[in-house]
């Protein structure tokens, strides 16, 4: 079952060849790999973009996608393909690990007034990077002794716009304690919740493609990176590249947190596991050169 084209004729979807060409292209651009089981998912979205752009055939759309000078169609396509699912305080034990174990150790290597840099990549619609903000302010007593920089990045510009706006309905906030919800959100007349402006202003949001070495080059000097639930969408080569980029983004001794089903031991030898009471995370070796 394909979706409807403009003229109302049901399309049969992409042919096997078209699908193969499309997924190669998309993989090369983003590192995301679609296996056969994802065919319907891909079909639906490509056909929708074809409808919006007025392309009658896949071939026509594909040409447009590839030669589109400002990359806006590619961005729109990416925005429709990404899986943005996320929520506040997801895998909370890692935030606990941050404030109870990682940060005290990092702070031990610094002096009061120094900067601590934390990167949430991918941050999707903002839940993760704001969770970091709440956690630091609520549960890390030393937060006032340091300048903490929080940066959230994602490839999806529509998700980033939602993050900037910071408005959420019930579902993504379900795991938040009532006190946190009251302290850091404003309740809107329609019942949704908006992250306070002071918090939104203190977080920097940027668009970045983790697979592009030129785009990621400026991201340096992080003490901690949260890279959760992204590597699962990549294949081996893309994971290796991602690990290399994250390695360069971290300071020696810096930590990286992955999603609960992602294991560095299956990806790359660049990092060493570090076990804390709350979680196993990965560390860039102290002796690693910059």
């Amino acid at each position: 079952m394909g979706s409807e084209l403009r003229d109302g004729v049901a399309s049969p979807g992409l042919s096997g060849e078209d699908f193969a060409r499309f997924r190669e292209f998309y993989y090369r651009k983003t590192g995301n790999w679609f296996d056969e089981a994802k065919r319907y998912y891909v079909d639906k979205r490509v056909l929708a973009r074809m409808g919006i752009t007025g392309c009658d055939s896949f071939r026509e759309y594909f040409v447009r996608l590839r030669f589109d000078a400002d990359g806006s169609e590619l961005q729109a396509l990416i925005n429709s393909m990404t899986v943005n699912e996320t929520y506040f305080f997801r895998e909370e034990y890692q935030f606990q690990c941050l404030v109870r174990s990682m940060l005290p150790e990092i702070a031990g290597r610094k002096r009061p007034g120094d900067t601590i840099r934390i990167w949430s990549l991918p941050c999707s619609s903002g839940e993760e990077v704001y969770s970091l903000a709440f956690y630091l302010l609520e549960y890390w007593p030393q937060v006032d002794d340091y300048d903490v920089e929080l940066i959230g990045s994602d490839i999806d510009t529509a998700a980033l716009d939602r993050a900037r706006e910071g408005i959420y309905d019930r579902r993504p906030v379900h795991a938040l304690p009532e006190a946190v919800l009251r302290r850091y959100f404003r309740r809107l007349p329609d019942g949704r919740h908006q992250v306070l402006e002071s918090i939104r202003d203190s977080v920097r949001l940027t668009r970045v493609n983790l697979q592009d070495p030129l785009e990621t080059r400026a991201y340096r000097g992080f003490d901690v990176v949260f890279c959760r639930n992204l590597l699962i969408y990549f294949d081996d080569a893309a994971r290796r590249r991602a690990a290399e980029t994250l390695f360069d983004a971290l300071k020696p001794g810096g930590y990286i947190c992955l999603g609960h089903s992602e294991f560095m031991s299956r990806i790359s030898s660049l990092f060493r596991p570090a076990r804390f009471p709350e979680a196993i995370v990965y560390q860039k070796p102290e002796e690693a050169d910059q």
Partner: peptide, 11 residues
Amino acid sequence: NGLEALERLAG
């Protein structure tokens, strides 16, 4: 592999 061994040894 060696990395997975290190993960176990960390705990």
